[in-house]
Design a protein around this nucleic acid. Sequence first.
RNA 1: GGACAGUUAGCUCAGUUGGUAGAGCGUCUCGUUGACGUCGAGAAGGUCAGAGGUUCGAAUCCUCUACUGUCCACCA
Length: 888
Amino acid sequence: MPKKITQYTEDDLPKAYDANLFEDSIYKNWEKAGAFKPVTKKGSKKKPFTIIMPPPNATGTLHLGHASMLALQDIMIRYHRMKGEPTLWIPGTDHAAIATQNKVEKLLAEKSITRHDLGRKKFIKEVEEFVKGSQNTIRNQVRKMGSSCDWSRETYTLDAGPSLAVRTVFKQMFDDGLIYRGNRIVNWCPRCQSTLADDEVKYKEARTKFYYLKYGPFIIGTARPETKFLDKVVVVHPDDKRYRKYVGKTFDVPWINGTVKATVLADKASDPTFGTGAMTITPAHSQIDFEIAQRHKLEIVKIIDEKGNLTEHAGEFAGMNAKVSREKIIEALDAKGLVEKIDENYIHNLSICYRCDATIEPLTSTQWFINVDKKIPKRSKSLKQLSIEVVKNGKIEILPEKFEKIYTHWMGNLHDWCISRQIWFGHQIPVWYCKNCPGKPIVEIDTPARCSNCKNTEITQDPDVLDTWFSSGLWTFSTLGWPKKTPDLKTYHPTSVLETGYDILFFWVARMILMTTYALNEVPFKTVYLHGLVRTRNGEKMSKSKPETCIDPLDMISKYGADALRLSMVIGGGPGNDVRLYEEKIAGYRNFVNKIWNVTRFILLNTTPSDLSKPFNKKDVKTTADKWILTRLQKLIKESTQLIEKYKFSEAGMKIYDFLWNEMADWYLEFSKGEHKNPAVLLHVLRDTLKLLHPFVPYITEVLWEKLGMQKFLMLEEWPTYNASLIFPADAKKIEKIYTLITEIRKVRAEYKLDPAKKFDAVIYGGALTALLKEKEQAIKRLANLENITLAKKGTKPEKALSVIASGVEVYIPFDQMFDIEKELERIKKELAQHEKELAGLQGRLHNKTFLGSAPKEVVEQVKSDAARHTEAITKLNEHRRGLEKAA
RNA sequence: GGACAGUUAGCUCAGUUGGUAGAGCGUCUCGUUGACGUCGAGAAGGUCAGAGGUUCGAAUCCUCUACUGUCCACCA
């Protein structure tokens, strides 16, 4: 930082801002100075603001989704830090059990090694090496985005702290009877060789064959004949008249492996309108069939095993891959004359694994579950009820609001959560089994030395690991030190905002709510802000398989700078709304960043070191233009602050953008060229604007702050406050009239294709604005490109002249030669028509008694004054027209 | 099958409690003006998806329709 300010010259400041020259070093300076750590100011009673960063998977690199998440969170964090709140943003990474294991297995497969070749210990070591590498990549990328997170508190889900939290919660839930081991239907991925939670299953539409098979007196329909070996129960709807006579009866039915004894049951689960209305059931491989079997206490036999092969119950087909066996089984059935017909065009949803796309096989398996319906001891409510309650009673607010309904609905239909996974990487389940005490699992936080029951030392730990979302569910408090009672936990929990994509509302957000309300009896966060997905220009999902549409955030940063990328992802998006991103858009915001640079450059080249060192004082306010820009600035401060408070970052960003470019640069800076230059106001407006911009574009604003000779980091400055004493409504209105006038003159010049280089003389009758016009004469001359101005309150109209009537001011540009009166008449007529059209609309309303009676006063007044304005313009234009007609 | 969102200028999107439609990009014309060509000035371009209703007044509120998208449920 420069200690002494010297006068800037053109050579000190390049014409264009080059983000690459500044970003990395600025970030390093912030980090070195400890600027990302929360600060509690002495005597301040401000409440802390906390965000726990959704931990990116430790599998690889960041994509645009992460970039947009980081941008939004950093905006909130920087804003609250500037508001003087103790602000904490904790970064971290997620071990992402299945995803990471798959990735490493794939890498090993390239060397023809399987995890079994290595064994559990060596394999885990391999995974950890891989994770270290990608964690470093992620850390650098998070930094590149300008994220002001507290690296000293960085956490990884497999760190000692979070792992202890995981085991502690597991034991607590087990002791409360909420965790149980059971043989239930699970979603099994034969590729991953593991269970999947219900929401880890994706669906894909597929065209398959649908078989109608003869089954005793029934025709049953199925898409999966390979599961039907042991079917001996026919289920029909109790109200189905066609089959009522069969209910409760038994039949001998010729079937795949000989004759079976079939029983007919009535159950409402059978849909009379689907297929033939009669179905046989396969309880071990279908959720619905399983439930029916439980209701009627039927035997549950597994036909397909974990590898996707048929079990010994398949008789001659045993050991065959289930998929392969299908045709063979149909052949066998057909040989027995049991195939009624085959529908070749049956479209149904295929369940596939969301990690590896393999077809899911529902099967029964012994797994660990969390019971979501059981009442928690001493709380008389289930996990499900607790989780719904905190959202319903407003302790947690979800944005956009519509997701509250979706959340409640999903939570209401939640089944018991299967938490065991048959993989090696992750938190191994803290359960041990003793050889001598079957059926009595030992659940401990720390590895026990012996069986708690018989003291035997021969105990083995459950080989499975926990679902990765189990540990993510604890993330808001495991990162803060729980189960230890740390000061961080006390200060920063519950956290303020959880900001994440709506695509993981169920995976993660719901589970955090469930786990936290259980373990801490407290909500994990007060507000959930769900951002949209980043899409391509055409609204498609960006995917790595289509590299031409897939934008790499790091490329964009090196090309346009992190600030431009941040803006392009924030502006145009809102909670729950997807954002379309394409390179021109980023380039557009790079242009804006450059504009910020040049506005500052102009001001620095027009101020002296002594201007820079003087604090702003109200006495420095001099011209009408000063009053106008200060008024506009106050309005901007008020509005943008409110918008940020309401999480409307896009609108806030747009407002500030608009102010800087269309008001400050286009008009105030222009007025400042020449005699109205006022360094004090220029600098004050610039400083406040840089502060408002800082959360959105932290790098450029910090760079410029330093150039302005400020000693402290901008990121640690105070957020501007609305100052009512800097509001001058009457002056602000006058300046707006001046610039409409200038615009009108420019319009006429352009319309007549007047030589832009040539300056013309003008006669101006200013009416009520005459004094101001006098003050701004130089600026008007410069901006409207006029030579001499003859200014008076009013006067006679020159005969041959172009006319501009705006803001109650008449401007005439006299012409001696080359002047086409006909053309000017035509133009005036066009303008008259425009005014008359608008006047007619307004008068229509003014003549309407009901309008006058029921519309609010302000509206009526507005309409009246608008009508008067048009009437005046019409009068003046008509006078001018008559003059021209005479001259012609 | 159920639920929800969207449909506004060529493209991407704003549009607060209803007061008569805006921006950026693109297009066209022009420009070496004391910061910026990553710029400046100006212009063209819209029956606010369609129909009906409430209202003095509807892009905005209500109903229906069409199209697009998302989520949930999964069907033997």
